[in-house]
């Protein structure tokens, strides 16, 4: 049963062994050289990486001072790379505020200006035309997403159609947060689900878990012409993202946490979008919830969205 070809190993202990050892050594050297050649792109990749960035702690573990240092470093990096002076702020949730969003499907005309404003405001990758908002052209009389389409190009609104923009629903039970293996994404006290771009490992489990196609991955390093960069940036929102990490709609927290309206709402020509503080009984969002018959998308998924849809009739 023994394979004769295995025999030399046991028998030729003398000169054969040295020749064999020499061949082995040669093979190992060649292998090591080939290995070095194979991983050469990794060395190119690490050239732009600093040890500070690599060892940076999780957002929640950074002291205000450390975070200040990090944000200054990011501003300096942006300046060096693009020549643009940007301001990165760390905007925290306000006490007594929980954000809610409602969208009137009766008056949304599907012009996609919200998606475009999102693209501009949030410093999205230009070549892919990324946006956190996807607008579906839907069949009247049906809420079946399977009948929707996104690449409509005729003048809107079309007869027999209605239009449903979908973005992050800022769920109260966000599946994306529970699946993250490293707690790189979490829900803040004002309801916004955020991502620490410097902590995410890019496994995309959250993208698989989200029922609303709300998450976006940076498949390549986002590219924006310097003159188009929005310099008013938030650390957890629209600052320039690194390659290989997840991002998502933050209700423009760099604006909304300063009391301003989100970019998508300001862009809406019909006023289909209503934004406000769910904890304020006098707010417009509360008026909508009280006086309109609102619904949430995929309620059966059990995600408890903070984003509501309604029709006038």
């Amino acid at each position: 049963m023994n394979n004769p070809s295995e025999q030399p190993v046991e028998t030729t202990e003398g000169g054969g062994m040295t020749r064999r050892t020499a061949i082995k050594a040669l093979g190992a050297t060649l292998g090591a050289a080939a290995f070095a050649q194979a991983i050469a792109p990794l060395t190119e990749w690490t050239e732009n990486m600093t040890m500070d960035e690599y060892l940076q702690k999780h957002y929640k573990e950074l002291s205000p001072f450390d975070l200040g240092v990090v944000m200054s470093r990011l501003e300096a990096e942006t300046k060096a790379e693009t020549g643009v002076d940007v301001h990165i702020g760390d905007y925290r949730p306000q006490p007594g505020v929980k954000f809610g969003y409602a969208l009137n499907l009766s008056i949304c005309v599907g012009c996609r200006r919200c998606a475009q404003a999102c693209h501009v405001e949030n410093n999205h990758d230009r070549p892919s035309g990324n946006s956190y908002i996807r607008v579906l052209e839907m069949e009247k009389g049906s809420l079946d997403l399977a009948k929707g389409r996104v690449n409509y190009d005729k003048p809107v609104p079309s007869k027999d159609k209605f239009y449903m923009p979908v973005q992050c629903q800022q769920c109260d039970k966000p599946p994306c947060v529970s699946v993250c293996p490293v707690e790189a994404t979490w829900k803040e006290s004002d309801g916004i689900v955020v991502v620490d771009y410097n902590w995410c490992i890019g496994c995309r489990y959250c993208e698989a878990a989200c029922p609303y196609h709300a998450r976006r991955f940076n498949w390549t390093k986002p590219q924006i012409p310097p003159e188009e960069i929005n310099p008013d940036q938030g650390y957890l929102s629209n600052r320039l993202r690194p390659q290989g990490v997840m991002e998502k709609c933050t209700f423009c927290l760099h604006k909304t946490r300063q009391g301003k309206l989100p970019a998508c709402l300001e862009a809406c020509p019909t006023g289909a979008r209503v934004f406000g503080n769910l904890l304020d009984p006098e707010s417009e969002i509360r008026w909508v919830l009280k006086n309109k018959r609102v619904f949430v998308l995929k309620e059966d998924a059990g995600t408890r969205p903070s984003f509501f849809y309604f029709f006038d009739e």
Binding site: S178, P181, V182, I201
Partner: peptide, 28 residues
């Protein structure tokens, strides 16, 4: 799994103690 990661160099974020290991919530 490693080749599927966007930032494989950040694997240490997963090591309990020095990283943040989202156990038991995350099935990963």
């Amino acid at each position: 799994v490693v080749v599927d990661m966007g930032r494989p160099e950040r694997f240490w974020h997963m090591i309990p103690g020095i990283g943040r290991f989202n156990w038991p919530m995350s099935m990963l």
